[in-house]
Design a protein around this nucleic acid. Sequence first.
DNA 1: TTGACATAGTTAGCTGGCTAATTATAAGCT
DNA 2: AGCTTATAATTAGCCAGCTAACTATGTCAA
Lengths: 173, 173
Amino acid sequence: MLQVKDIPNAEILQKFADHYPQADIESVMAFLTLLRVGSDLSQALNLYLAQFELLQGRWWVLLLLMREDDLTSTPSVLAEKAGVSRATMTGLLDGLLREKLIKRFHGKQDRRQIQISLTALGQAKLNQVMPGYYLRVSKLMQILTEAESQQLMALLEKIHQQRHVFENQSDNA
Amino acid sequence: MLQVKDIPNAEILQKFADHYPQADIESVMAFLTLLRVGSDLSQALNLYLAQFELLQGRWWVLLLLMREDDLTSTPSVLAEKAGVSRATMTGLLDGLLREKLIKRFHGKQDRRQIQISLTALGQAKLNQVMPGYYLRVSKLMQILTEAESQQLMALLEKIHQQRHVFENQSDNA
DNA sequence: TTGACATAGTTAGCTGGCTAATTATAAGCT
DNA sequence: AGCTTATAATTAGCCAGCTAACTATGTCAA
């Protein structure tokens, strides 16, 4: 994803506003800030996980499995919960299987389905990663008071509910 | 990037808190919400750009070029401003060159450097894309009052300044 | 001046996203 | 039973990120 290291300053935005008078500089700044903070945090998380030879995609799959009472799920359910295509999930599971963090086997009922289970090694990997993860997230968010944290979430949710405005149609405004 | 479609609910977080007592559920929820909103907006932007056969990486390069008075820069400067490696920039420029949205030529001075310029076609592409982009960003942020918008940015900046906590060391806390 | 180091860009090979097509199996109709 | 349609997973091939290694060129100091 775009890293947006170099958010335009007011001068540059003004130049663009000359070309594109519909630009609302305040909105653009806030939007780009949100994208940048999100991508920077995501990258920071990736760097942390990389110490354990994990990346976000694979780590998230292990977490999804750990949520299950029997530590088991199927590729298509995992794909949906992780928000990736089934093809992508196939690739993630291949990698996890190579490292023996999961195992796959056929279920009894539907012979199209494959069952995916967290192995003891996979659980051990999570036990290595998670305490440091929680510690870092706590430290990160400690900069906000509880009230600020809840307000942030409320503001983010509001924007999130508006994301459909990017979904084409209605250029007529 | 991870899509985080399925943020854990309180029940699941409690289960994890049993395993990992250092977990601060409030912090984790806020952190994951931030990541999710960022990635969803990024994806929404990508979908909008895809209508014009652009993606964020290439679109951002065109914008960086348009900022320059002579519409010209070099691959390494563009890479730094876009926050990607020079290798990645080479690939992005290859794609833009294929579509004739930019042109490349050698400068006089340093024969290692290559100059990259926005072409008329590239400018025309931006003129297609930008009005709708600004319109959508405005609509997105209209959900917030001006005060809320500024508060959001302030909260995001605070968190952003704390992102170093993911940079390893200091597990001792 | 020439040897060492630095810098600009590319290439190769990896990861992890995607869509579209393919294979196998299941389910439902007639 | 046999068709059609739907679903589960994989494969192939694309894009865009990365690091490491390489080529070419520039810089600087002995």
